[in-house]
Write a protein that binds this DNA or RNA. Structure first.
Lengths: 165, 165
DNA sequence: ATGGAGTCTCTTGACGTCGAGATAGCTGAG
DNA sequence: CTCAGCTATCTCGACGTCAAGAGACTCCAT
């Protein structure tokens, strides 16, 4: 089945036959798919009245395991936003009672963000919903194909995630 | 090589062994990679003093071929933004002299957005730069692997691009 | 000890996006 | 021919993000 990127690549080959646009076959699909996923997630989370950005922060803390706390800096590398954005997110989540800020006992510059009980429940509930939705999207592929796809993507993300980025 | 998603999945398996988190192996990588690509593109375009959103609009028009014009509605489906956003983008690009708005002769509700000569040059210049950058990122993969990856991604994007979405 | 480089978090202002609704024009069934 | 419903674009206010930089603290070489 054809997708929008097939049309886009065909258009470039017509307009700029001098250029090699093969990279777009992969990377434009990644960007567009991410955009579609954002929209789908926004819908899925709205049932739990959660925004995607709230989900990202709450689940990062949830994954950390008891006592469910991380520094803002650790949250940055997991969520790929800037520090100003994270300060703002923590402020808003704290105002809603889903996280709380504690002083870091071992570094007086630092802060620890801890999930409240309610925050933890919200994270657990919405994760299950998200996984259902994602399974539906991935049902286009066989189990083997999903494995291949994950492995290929890992090769592209690893350099970003390991070299500082 | 391990990436951040490997760590994320391992953490979930430890914290929520009852859940099947396999979908994250694919879709979290897609979202994170898209985010890394955004940052990389922002950097690449800053050499041409272009923002990614400007690139998206200008190249959509460039691809359309002479006379390089599309309706705002056609630009929406290519760029995956809302109509309010597109109006705003066109305003700003028009103010910079990179596009101009013309009345649609066949529908008085409608408008056509046309690339100016300068807009066309900027699109052509920045596309070449982007392709170089993307080729570097994709050099992690063999040509055959890039082909596989593109095909697998197409299977996931096609439903979004064809069923209205 | 101490000074300077480095690190961590927060502040600020500009910017871009979204969602909902308004407006104007098209279209087809009756 | 007409009017109800549809489509295309724009308006507007709320919101979230970013980049740059400030302030507080730590760490290491001297």
């Amino acid at each position: 089945m054809e997708d929008e990127v097939d049309r886009l690549v065909a258009a470039w080959r017509r307009e700029r036959p001098d250029l090699d646009v093969e990279p777009l076959e992969v990377l434009s699909r990644v960007s567009r798919l991410a955009r579609h996923l954002d929209r789908a997630r926004r819908l899925a989370f709205s049932e739990h009245s959660l925004e995607p950005w709230e989900f990202d922060v709450l689940t990062a803390l949830r994954r950390a395991g008891s006592p469910y706390q991380l520094s803002p800096g650790q949250l940055l590398t997991q969520t790929l936003v800037t520090s100003g954005t994270m300060t703002n997110r923590i402020d808003r989540l704290a105002k809603k009672g889903l996280v709380e800020r504690l002083p870091d006992p071992s570094d007086r510059r630092g802060v620890l963000v801890r999930l409240t009980d309610e925050g933890r429940d919200r994270a657990d509930q919405s994760l299950a919903g998200l996984l259902d939705q994602e399974r539906a999207i991935l049902s286009e592929l066989s189990s083997a194909q999903r494995g291949e796809l994950a492995a290929l993507l890992r090769q592209l993300t690893a350099p970003f995630d390991n070299i500082p980025g």
